[in-house]
Computed example of a mutant assay.
Amino acid sequence: MRLFKLFNNKRLFILLITLVAFIVLMGFSLGPRKSLSWPENFLRDTTGFVQKLFYKPAGYIAGFFEDIGNLRDMAEENKRLKILMAQYARDKAQYNFVMSKNEELEVALKFTEAQRNLYKYEYHIANVVSVTTEPGNNTLVIDLGSKDGIRLNMSVTSTEGLVGVISNVSNFTSTVKLMTMMDIHDPNSQPPIAATAVNKEGKTFGMIESYDQKTGMLLMNKIPVGDPIAKDDKIISSGSGGTYPRGMTIGIVEEVKISQFGLTSTAIIKPAAGFQDWKELFVVFTEERVE
């Protein structure tokens, strides 16, 4: 019994000493000091080392996964940008096409309105389907046919000038024989064009009968002596003969030559039409052919 009591007193004594030491230690920790005690330094250094040992690799791992996430976001952003670039390129091309088409239609509209006001003709726009440039067969095919009212020998023009005449017609397409096939010695050639000069109607007259393949010029023959035709005159169809409507632009006079015997003259004419790179042309409907 005494031993048990002594043992209890000893435990109480140790607890008391421990409490006092703890209070003293707390006093040192809370009180104003210039330096930490070695146990505190040891504890702080140990804690910092452990944090550095575990937190730094953890930071690398976290940063690695964050970089992966950023790369994924960048990839998605690049994908969206590529799609936008493709859409922009497509829209830009479409815009350019529409603008070009509008410009062509504006030119065509002004042309047809001006011609209609002058001669009351109708101009039916036609797309060029194909072009043949074989020697002796300079023709092209348009997407208008008999169902559209197209008939043989109708004139075909561009916005610049006369191109040729309809030489063959099917239901949905027609063949145009170009002025570059004009040859006075060829019975299958395009018919000659009775022509005159602008502001000299009634004074100037001649027949455009052939095309010089070497020079690319039209020849206007049978011009009578004393005719006032001159260089830089604008030549148009006179309407005589009925094949070609009056007032169709043909070209510009480059030179006038007197024939060998001095009875007539020949005018060298540069065609107004370029005879290449056509996309659209116009078929001329005169009053008796309008349907």
Rank of each mutant, 00 (worst) to 15 (best):
M1R: 11
L3Q: 08
L6M: 14
F7C: 15
N8E: 09
L15V: 06
A21I: 10
L30Y: 13
L36T: 06
W38P: 10
P39K: 08
D45S: 07
T46S: 14
G48Q: 15
V50Y: 14
L53V: 14
F64V: 15
G69H: 08
R72I: 14
E76Y: 05
R80A: 08
I83K: 10
Y88H: 08
A89N: 09
N96Q: 07
M99W: 04
S100E: 07
K101P: 05
E106V: 07
E106G: 07
K110T: 13
F111R: 01
E122P: 15
Y123F: 03
T133V: 00
G136H: 02
N138Y: 08
G145A: 05
S146L: 05
L152T: 07
M154T: 11
T157V: 12
S158L: 03
L162M: 01
V163G: 04
F172G: 15
P187T: 06
P192H: 12
I193A: 01
A194F: 13
A194P: 12
F205V: 14
F205G: 07
S210M: 10
K214S: 10
I223R: 00
S240P: 00
G241R: 05
T243E: 00
Y244L: 04
V253P: 00
V253S: 01
E254W: 03
L263V: 07
K270P: 01
G274Q: 09
F275N: 03
K279L: 12
K279V: 14
V283T: 00
E288P: 03
